[in-house]
Design a protein around this nucleic acid. Structure first.
Length: 328
DNA sequence: AAGTGCGCCAACCGCTCACGA
DNA sequence: GTCGTGAGCGGTTGGCGCACT
């Protein structure tokens, strides 16, 4: 990144920020916005690299940061979201308003992880430690679900970020957009709520029919997106993810899960033939439709999940509970 | 009082991704 | 397709403060 010469590097300050530096950074951003982080330090009169400034701003100086003790509800949310998302701290932070990814990560590493370990739960898998040798089929199915859920939540998180960023930029530069954008409220991503509701109607998250119900959602965005979020579970090549987006302010979120029945289950060597082909074409009101996930193509059967049903139901109950998050 | 160990957390580092030329 | 650049993310580190010996 950048090609600053060694002389410049020598002059860059590291370590804890002083109050004076904080004030300089704060004052500059309040007046000009951050713009290019790389150019910011010179403009603001700081002997720091842009990266350091960005970090200081996002993790400490930003006005919309809540500091201090995590509530028990926040703790639960972190645990459950971690079960779904793994170490995707930024994605988790998206669902915990006013908390930074760094703060959540620290809290997890210093407290929650240890607490789970003490309780006999493996913090990596969120399963009881004596159950690690359980059914590989169950593990495979749950893992597959988690991957799918992860990808979906990640997509949502990115969309939220995109919209927030663009909104900020527009407000900052006071651009007049034609046609004018709708007032920007928190993006409403109700996938989980809807999913939960659907699940309830069908006798639980996994439905009485024995197949997964579709996480059909209504996404409300106000704003344009110049980039098409690419999503996919970790470990999947990005080549498997494609997206088409429109810059003109309309976006339709459409995902495709291309699974063939039975292909999922394979001891210790699980194939994930999931293609997340999202075509974004969003209008202010959009719907999320995931082909192949909400119908008979679904490879899941209720028996596969019985043992994990309560866990996942509980999990979705939690993430559906009001935390003040734009999603929940 | 001094030394030691530990927990916490701000900040850094390295990597990856997206984008434009 | 390649390269340079900017930005974001997750893992790791270093320093501070506190408790204990």
């Amino acid at each position: 990144m950048g090609r600053s010469n060694s002389h410049e590097k020598l002059e860059l300050k590291k370590g804890p920020w002083t109050r004076e530096e904080d004030q300089k950074l704060l004052a500059f951003i309040e007046e000009h916005g951050h713009g290019s982080w790389r150019a910011l330090p010179a403009k603001a009169g700081l002997q720091r690299c842009g990266k350091s400034c960005r970090l200081r701003w996002t993790n400490y100086l930003r006005p919309d940061i809540k500091r201090g003790k995590f509530s028990s509800q926040e703790e639960k949310a972190i645990i459950r979201l971690h079960a779904l998302l793994g170490n995707r701290w930024s994605a988790i932070a998206t669902h915990l308003p006013k908390r930074t990814d760094n703060e959540i990560k620290n809290y997890w590493n210093t407290r929650l992880k240890k607490r789970l370990t003490r309780m006999g739960i493996d913090p990596a898998t969120h399963k009881p430690k004596d159950n690690l040798g359980g059914s590989s089929r169950h593990a495979a199915v749950v893992s597959h679900m988690a991957q799918w859920e992860t990808a979906r939540l990640e997509a949502e998180a990115r969309l939220v970020r995109e919209c927030k960023l663009l909104t900020k930029l527009q407000l900052l530069h006071k651009t007049v957009v034609s046609p004018p954008l709708q007032p920007v409220g928190p993006p409403c991503l109700d996938v989980l709520k809807v999913w939960q509701a659907t699940a309830s109607q069908n006798g639980g998250f996994f439905g009485s029919a024995g197949s997964l119900e579709s996480p059909t959602s209504t996404l409300n965005f106000a704003g344009n997106s110049s980039r098409v979020p690419k999503v996919g579970p970790r470990g999947c090549s990005n080549d498997a993810v494609s997206g088409v987006g429109k810059v003109n302010g309309s976006m339709e979120v459409k995902g495709k899960l291309d699974n063939s029945v039975g292909q999922l289950v394979h001891d210790n060597n699980i194939a994930y033939p999931m293609d997340y082909n999202y075509n974004y074409n969003y209008n202010l009101q959009s719907s999320m439709e995931i082909e192949g996930y909400n119908n008979s193509i679904s490879p899941y059967h209720v028996g596969d999940f019985e043992d994990n049903k309560n866990y996942w139901n509980e999990l979705f109950n939690l993430v559906s509970s009001p935390l003040g998050s734009p999603v929940f």
